[in-house]
Design a protein around this nucleic acid. Structure first.
Lengths: 124, 124
DNA sequence: ACAGTAATAGTAATCATTACTACTTAGTAA
DNA sequence: TTACTAAGTAGTAATGATTACTATTACTGT
């Protein structure tokens, strides 16, 4: 992967974001610095940065894909009404702790990511 | 919400599914029972069933939305290669336990769902 | 049976994402 | 520096999942 001004800008936008922007939001933000950047370029670089492990994709309630540049382990709180995603940094997060932050927990989902047995066996 | 044969069929397909099908997969399965059901009907009913809390949406690595009829608390293991989603039922799941199942954990995400302070305050 | 309204089938429209193409640029080696 | 080459880009077209729309059908209470 060669260095490119556009990819650096995309990564920088994500690393300095507290929210979890979508591709078009990132596009708008990068545009303030590189006005003629193409939306396709943003998508391509997001894909590469994800494949290389520099950013991750965030689970969301809308159809769009949300991105995150912060790779530190943390919890997400996803509001069912406004679909806003709040970062939660407390070490051992329990619903009572979240309640102190004004976040009423109704349900929880945990996902582990990795490679399954089939994919490891079929070396591909 | 009135009763309808189409919605019952969609829910039944989801409840009897071990995988986590997308809208078009559900469409194909319901079609074996109701051949002239419309894809739009499947989407509308999935939305209603989700809003009413009968089904949930599953985080995934592709663009399509995956659905699940099983509301019991459990963990998902998402393979980065084949994008297959495995249900994990063990009570206190730790990577070593998953390893026994042949699932190599590389990372983990936990999401809490609920309503945030803003949305509770603005009664809407 | 009738009225009122939710639900449906079928199709058109939307819109996030991906693919394509001609042109540009970063990295490298003479 | 210069030339080469493969990766990257802008701009646009295409794809495809999802949503919207409309005329018709099917519940449900009176």
């Amino acid at each position: 992967m060669r260095s490119s001004r556009q990819r650096d800008a995309v990564l920088e936008v994500l690393r300095s974001s507290c929210d979890h922007p979508t591709a078009d939001m990132i596009f708008e933000r990068v545009r303030t610095e590189i006005p003629n950047i193409s939306l396709g370029t943003v998508y391509r670089n997001l894909g590469q940065l994800k494949d290389e492990g520099f950013i991750t994709v965030v689970e969301s309630s809308d159809t769009k894909v949300h991105y995150e540049g912060n790779l530190t382990d943390h919890i997400h709180f996803l509001c069912k009404k406004c679909h806003n995603i709040t970062d939660v940094w407390c070490k051992s997060p329990v619903p009572s702790q979240l309640a102190k932050m004004g976040l009423q927990v109704e349900s929880q989902k945990t996902v582990y990511y990795g490679v399954c047995k089939n994919c490891r066996d079929n070396i591909n």
